[in-house]
Amino acid sequence: MTDPRPHHYRFVHRVLPRQVLEFGPRVTTPAPDGGSLLPVLTGIWDDLGQSLPPEDRLPSRGLDCRHLATDDHTMLLVTLPAPVGATEAHFAAAVHPRGAKAVRYLTLEHALNPFDGSVGTVLGEWTTESHLNHGPGPSPVAELFVAAVAELTAPKKRRFWRR
Rank of each mutant, 00 (worst) to 15 (best):
77 L>R: 15
56 D>I: 00
110 H>T: 02
60 S>G: 15
27 V>W: 11
138 P>G: 05
37 L>C: 00
11 F>D: 08
155 P>Q: 08
123 L>K: 01
88 E>A: 05
30 P>D: 11
100 A>W: 07
148 A>G: 00
163 R>Q: 13
156 K>Q: 12
54 P>I: 04
13 H>Q: 03
62 G>K: 03
160 F>M: 10
156 K>P: 00
98 R>S: 13
106 L>T: 07
139 S>K: 09
46 D>E: 15
134 H>R: 02
10 R>L: 15
27 V>R: 01
79 T>D: 12
44 I>E: 13
133 N>L: 02
2 T>F: 05
6 P>F: 03
5 R>P: 00
6 P>V: 03
36 S>M: 09
60 S>C: 13
62 G>N: 07
110 H>L: 03
103 V>L: 08
55 E>F: 05
145 F>W: 14
67 H>L: 13
141 V>P: 00
116 D>G: 02
43 G>N: 12
57 R>M: 11
107 T>I: 06
138 P>N: 06
135 G>Y: 04
103 V>K: 07
15 V>Y: 08
90 H>I: 08
45 W>N: 01
106 L>I: 03
119 V>M: 09
8 H>M: 10
80 L>T: 09
150 A>P: 04
31 A>I: 06
20 V>N: 06
2 T>G: 04
39 P>E: 01
46 D>I: 11
3 D>G: 14
71 D>P: 05
51 S>E: 11
49 G>S: 02
12 V>L: 03
26 R>F: 12
143 E>Y: 02
111 A>H: 02
17 P>R: 10
156 K>F: 10
68 L>G: 12
81 P>Q: 11
45 W>S: 02
23 F>C: 01
127 T>F: 11
16 L>I: 03
104 R>Q: 13
114 P>I: 04
124 G>C: 14
160 F>Q: 12
34 G>H: 11
116 D>I: 08
80 L>D: 01
69 A>R: 07
134 H>M: 06
110 H>M: 06
59 P>F: 12
152 L>Q: 14
144 L>H: 14
22 E>Q: 09
90 H>P: 04
85 G>H: 10
72 D>P: 00
105 Y>S: 03
74 T>C: 13
11 F>R: 07
127 T>K: 13
79 T>P: 09
152 L>T: 10
11 F>G: 06
46 D>A: 06
160 F>L: 15
73 H>G: 10
88 E>D: 05
46 D>C: 01
105 Y>M: 04
106 L>C: 08
81 P>V: 12
128 T>S: 05
49 G>M: 14
97 P>H: 10
36 S>V: 04
82 A>S: 13
141 V>W: 00
112 L>G: 03
51 S>N: 06
77 L>K: 12
112 L>S: 03
96 H>G: 07
159 R>N: 05
128 T>A: 12
137 G>V: 11
50 Q>K: 11
74 T>E: 14
69 A>K: 14
140 P>Y: 07
120 G>L: 01
130 S>M: 13
71 D>Q: 14
153 T>M: 11
96 H>F: 14
149 V>A: 11
10 R>I: 09
